[in-house]
Write a protein that binds this DNA or RNA. Sequence first.
DNA 1: TGTGTTTTGTACCAATCGGTTCCTAATACT
DNA 2: AGTATTAGGAACCGATTGGTACAAAACACA
Lengths: 195, 195
Amino acid sequence: MARPREFDADEAMDKAMGLFWQVGYEQASLSELLAAMEITKGSFYKAFQDKQSIYLAALERYNDKVISGTAAFLTDPNQGSGRARILGLFGKVAEEVRRNGDRLGCFLCNALVDKAAEDAEAEAKLQAMVHRLENSFFRALLDDQRLNEAAARETARGILSIYFGLRVLGRAGLAGQMAGDCIRQVERLLDQDGH
Amino acid sequence: MARPREFDADEAMDKAMGLFWQVGYEQASLSELLAAMEITKGSFYKAFQDKQSIYLAALERYNDKVISGTAAFLTDPNQGSGRARILGLFGKVAEEVRRNGDRLGCFLCNALVDKAAEDAEAEAKLQAMVHRLENSFFRALLDDQRLNEAAARETARGILSIYFGLRVLGRAGLAGQMAGDCIRQVERLLDQDGH
DNA sequence: TGTGTTTTGTACCAATCGGTTCCTAATACT
DNA sequence: AGTATTAGGAACCGATTGGTACAAAACACA
């Protein structure tokens, strides 16, 4: 027995996440946020608490959608060997760069630089996402059963580091010329594990 | 025939650079900037044009001081083999993390995420710095004369990527546990080039 | 057709944003 | 000592910041 809301809360959250992803927390002003979400102030503060809350919710959403997706891909045996899955993920990133230039990068990576050191709650969420990604690489490496756990942990962290580095280069507008070479190095780390 | 300024412009620039480094462009408000630089508004706008200008000047300063320093280290034959110099640089980063936790990261890396995609002038400066770093790795690799130029270019970009990734992990507060493993992977890339 | 409940949009809020104006203080040179 | 020139600092600027208050609008249910 009430007035129903006129917008889709999920869609609005997606738009908000997109803006935070593009420009970061500070640069995404409330008015830009409202414009992107296509709602007005009243609805915003009724549906979401405030800017900080919706930012944390956007991080959570990124975790649920994007990170979960890549974690699933990396650990899914149906997607080929662990090596193939890891290279497949990097291939997707390279593809994205090739297609639209990709100045977006990775929300997780951007947020780490933007907000991790400034907000304890965000930091915890971000660290958890980093570890999720690390563990996905780790499991993919173990699936090929050529590595013990310690070696796989090391390699996973190295690959994670290359991954973040590549996304930073994406933001720099330099991933176009560098993605191929970076991926070749991932390949070398993987193949070196072979014998 | 005029009143001399009461502050050291170089010192003030350093303080400004430090703040931008820590919190990025937007988050560094003018009043915070003035507090950090220990000058008042009048002096600020007299000595530097505006916020945007001093930010670009801070980038330039970072290039002149920090990037120049690491480029010099990486390409100085007196610092040992190319391999040793590259590992030495990563060792310095790891050391910094060990000493004070290092949530600062690398100004270049932070600025790439923060500002590269939003400001053309900043973007050009940042890309130039990235290439300087890349070329320093490249030259260090060539100095050991075990690689042709194409192979060295590839490896240099891979190492550059690991470098940025490690700095992002530093911002995340995770470099403490990951730096060692990341460096091990750099080592593997270097040693694999040996035969 | 009321009636209760929630959403929506607008008007408003103090605080802060980056930036300018302008007067005074301090100096070097004559 | 007088003067030209610059630095310093405070007052002030409109615009925008994130956030609140509240009345009108739109629905579900009786």
